[in-house]
Design a protein around this nucleic acid. Sequence first.
DNA 1: AAATTCTCCTGAAGGC
DNA 2: TGCCTTCAGGAGAATT
Length: 272
Amino acid sequence: MPELPEVETIRAGLAPVLIGNRIQHLAIHAPKLRWPIPVAQLQQETCNQIIHTLERRGKYLLWGCGSGHILIHLGMSGRLFVQQGARAAHDHAIWTLENGVRICLHDPRRFGALLWIDGAWQNHPLLAGLGPEPLGERFDADHLHAHCRGRRVAIKTLIMNPRVVVGVGNIYAAEALFLAGVHPARAAQTLSRDDGARLVRAIRQVLQAAIVQGGTTLRDYRQSDGTPGYFALHLNVYGRSGEPCRVCATPIALLRLGQRSAFFCPRCQAEG
DNA sequence: AAATTCTCCTGAAGGC
DNA sequence: TGCCTTCAGGAGAATT
């Protein structure tokens, strides 16, 4: 579940640990995650260098270090934390800082990424085409409405497209559509401008609330200090098929949109 | 069973 | 009708 709130929680937790500290050693124990790990380049470029920034763009983490950036994506099962004990299974990368702190990248399913970017990250192929940050000023009703125009794609699929807006994964897409009262399968082009405005507000609201709760822990996700996130207690539709809607008591429904589960209330989120 | 997102492929739909 | 382009959606990538 690392969606935007989870990655932001990890960033905020690790920033005071990383920033201003020097990387002493990097050990890599897997040849590749989603892509091959450029081991020699990472070691050469970052060892003995100070980490000066820790940024998040969508679900990507960027450590400003030396003359470039370490890029990390947590995929579906990735965790990034301060390692306390011995190395465990699926601990693929371990940074040792000059003060002795060890940072571990752990990812059983290996859908994550660990790459090196020379110089600025804004033009890197993985980042250059990303849509606006959902909590930033550039994400507004105009922007969403422009992307909906002429598109028959389901609105849930559209808001999960990182080229439209970053960071909205399956859980928060479902929750935002519920708050906005929009059926997940509605063709994007049928949304009125007012629907779009409500959806933008709902996306911001649900992401902000989740960040306050430290993210959503279903199974694997932990904050960088090991504690779970508590937004699962606030979920209205995600994972609740068959249970009563908290607003109208109608059983929550589940439909398959693409290859993803789409949970919704058939009454609060009527079609059309 | 499945939280992520890339690339590649196929078939449908739209423009002219 | 037919050709061409774009769009939509599915598979596959790794693993507990």
